[in-house]
Design a protein around this nucleic acid. Structure first.
Lengths: 137, 137
DNA sequence: CTGTATCCTTGCCGATACTG
DNA sequence: CAGTATCGGCAAGGATACAG
């Protein structure tokens, strides 16, 4: 017998390394700062559009809607519309979205953990490429 | 006494949600498909430029050098140059890079795990927005 | 409040050519 | 083989205006 999982494991579609695979397409679609930041901001909570907008500092109105729609299409966020006036729309992560959020959490933790190291590395690197050899001309 | 770590935990720089924080800058820099794909491809191995290029299917010469330089600057990959001819350059993850790779691994696993679900969600979503209301004018 | 559409700027990214 | 630089197309993404 061949389960979906087993089929995928053997299928080229499940391979992120292949440029034209479905896995790569999904991976690429989700591997951008706004998607990850939004997923992280949603967390366990249910948030309205405006609340979400103020949580994800720096995101434009357009990018928020756009990214939200993409996430909704992939079934990572659930969108609930209330027939009220003024309109009210709630967003929350689906199970798939929550699962992804776990790894995003890891990335955030990683960022905090290595902040200083990276800052130092940058200074070292930049120093190398400005003073450099020590004598020009 | 105040350690770097402790200072960071309390500092606004460590907060990914702030648009102008260092954490956000680092996060954004690393949250793009090429950086993550390259880190994933490197894994535990030490690879030369060309080998890496063929591992990360679809990446251009330019993007590979460019992204590698950024990763090197942040101290995530280590670059070793051998004074040979033809030139030989090896790339491998540093400890910080390897730590990030763990979470990237998680993202890849997530992609494989939810591949079919996402594909299905997309079909459902797209069906909604084509047939839709059933009658246009 | 939420969403869509339009303009317009910016920078990504690929292709190409040239150096060590 | 590895790296840098330049040009150009094109898509990302911000600002604004307008609709439900």
């Amino acid at each position: 017998m061949v389960t979906e999982q087993a089929r995928r494991a053997d299928d080229e579609d499940g391979d992120v390394t292949r440029a034209d695979s479905l896995a790569r397409q999904i991976f690429s679609g989700v591997a951008n700062k706004w998607a990850l930041l939004i997923i992280n901001a949603l967390g366990e909570r249910t948030l309205r559009f405006t609340a979400l907008r103020s949580e994800v500092d720096g995101v434009s109105h357009k990018m928020l809607t756009q990214t939200l729609r993409a996430l909704q299409r992939d079934g990572l966020v659930h969108r609930t519309v209330y027939a009220e006036v003024p309109p009210r729309v709630d967003y929350r992560l689906t199970e798939a979205g929550a699962a992804l959020r776990d790894t995003v959490n890891g990335m955030c933790a990683w960022t905090r953990r290595y902040l200083d190291e990276i800052e130092a590395a940058r200074r070292r690197f930049d120093a190398q490429n400005t003073g450099d050899t020590g004598g020009e001309s």
